[in-house]
Amino acid sequence: MTDTCSPRPMVNAGLLKKYLGRRVTTVVKVFRSDGADLVGQAPDGTSITVRKAASSSITLSHFVEVVGVVEGESALRAEICTNFGDAFDMVTYNQLCQLANCDNRDCFV
């Protein structure tokens, strides 16, 4: 069965405002964590805040994929966090976010 009702598009910080209140996917490089919240660098270099990130998957200066709901132009409420390790190419991922959100949208959302 295919279910495409609840996609979680891949975005960078610049694209967050297009998806206010909706689920998205992004990758952040963790700067600091403050309890359950973390601050990190989005693929396009801007820093964003992730609330309620599961602390178990967070290591400083590692990359974390966050699936969550957009709460503001630079804030997410996390639902799922996945540790992407310490070697992840953010530049390419950022370009993918842009490609997937423009001409090639029909493959994705």
């Binding site: 069965m1 295919t2 279910d3 495409t4 009702c5 996609p7 979680r8 598009p9 891949m10 959302v109």
Partner: peptide, 11 residues
């Protein structure tokens, strides 16, 4: 399982 590839889910 359901595979969620960001665009949707498929069995």
């Amino acid at each position: 399982f359901q595979l969620d590839d960001t665009t949707g889910q498929i069995e």
